[in-house]
Design a binder for these strands. Structure first.
Lengths: 218, 218
DNA sequence: CGTTACCTTGATATATCTCAACTCAAGTGG
DNA sequence: CCACTTGAGTTGAGATATATCAAGGTAACG
């Protein structure tokens, strides 16, 4: 960890909307988000634009670029953000010398694989109400782990970004949020969010409103 | 690669339904699928059962277990299958000695992160018809890369497994398949599948029937 | 030959997408 | 300082994909 600090360059500041890496650009460095937030945007072959990741402080960015040596999506700052650059060459050399560094990277990657898999498969089976609940619970937990408030936070994403990330439309996201407000579960004004009833939010996230039969063998 | 062969144990045969690793079991070995196929099944905290991965010949299995040192889902043979065991300790030691081995593992992991992310986010936005088309295209491509027929194959999964994997119901999977048949795109009898019109299948996979507005900023 | 698991088909209900109009806030330039 | 523009968010009404429930069919298997 200390070694990692040695090869990390001082934090860079990105203005809102700045592009940290363009889709298809060669991987030169990984990044660690220090402050602010980024989104990863993928443009598919047939021209769709998808938000595939949200990067918050503490996150390691670019692990998905190692395979092909090329960033699979564009990284765009959602607000003024600070990121640390970790030159990939140096990181690789470090992994040569230190098995701890290697383990750290491997575990980060392994974590991401599992996390994406489970979360997204869960979302596939969920209603809009439950998807959003899952989303905010995950965000809340990430903020908590980083020492920020877990029940009151600002998300720089637009409703459209959230919708794209969750596979919904902006309208549905909006409507679901006002439902939460009516039920006194969450407060959403603009991009400020406040969780009022965490337990109820958890219940909503797990309630697979429809889709509740257990048909999978074994 | 040759070194990897040295530490790999001879292939083991699994009977249909056999459990290669149980969810929560400690990670001792990774596996490489040689013949047959496995599914990964996750039981969530609230008792849902999800099929989160399909493992075909050539796939590396267990990369998602490295993080916590524990398998995040059960690995179940869908048919009589042959797998090679790769003791994790030895693999780790090998990574110490050979940067090529380390790169191989890192690239496998990186590939999985990106693949899951993109494919699942795509699915989130797709109708049942397109989800199944994506699914079969991906399978077909995987078989092709391994030297099997890309337009005619057997999938040992049940409709329920497929449904769970794609976030649909078995009924919808079935109905969609008969639609494909009516359109002469695919033939599905039992677990034998034949792709009749690859181009049309690609078109179906990309056609996001609904959900076709571009609302994401940037 | 009966049992079991899987698959199919049909009718109905509902979640959510789609389209369109409107509000609101922020920023711009005259 | 005020009209104008622009992008985001909201709300409503209607269309539709797909879940749900239920019943019948098929195929493997002991």
């Amino acid at each position: 960890m200390a070694l990692l600090g040695e090869i990390t360059r001082p934090a860079v500041t990105l203005e809102k909307g700045a592009i940290l890496a363009r889709q298809g650009a060669a991987l030169c460095s990984l990044f660690a988000v220090h402050t602010g937030s980024l989104k990863q945007v993928n443009v598919t072959d047939n021209g769709e634009t998808l938000v595939t990741a949200l990067c918050l402080p503490g996150d390691m960015v670019g692990l998905d670029a190692i395979d092909k040596g090329v960033f699979p999506g564009s990284l765009i700052a959602l607000e003024t953000s600070g990121v640390c650059e970790i030159p990939y060459e140096k990181l690789d050399a470090l992994c040569d010398r230190s098995r701890e560094a290697r383990w750290l990277i491997q575990r980060c990657q392994s974590h991401d694989i599992h996390d994406e898999r489970l979360k997204l498969h869960l979302l596939l089976h969920r209603t809009a109400e439950a998807r959003l609940a899952c989303f905010f619970l995950a965000i809340s937990e990430r903020f908590r782990l980083r020492g920020y408030s877990s029940h009151h936070f600002r998300l720089a994403m637009t409703r459209s970004d959230i919708a794209s990330y969750l596979g919904l439309t902006p309208e549905t996201v909006g409507r679901t949020l006002v439902n939460y407000q009516r039920q006194n579960v969450m407060l959403a004004r603009g991009r400020e969010f406040r969780i009022l009833d965490l337990e109820q939010l958890k219940r909503l996230a797990e309630a697979n409103g429809r889709r509740h039969r257990q048909r999978v063998s074994q």
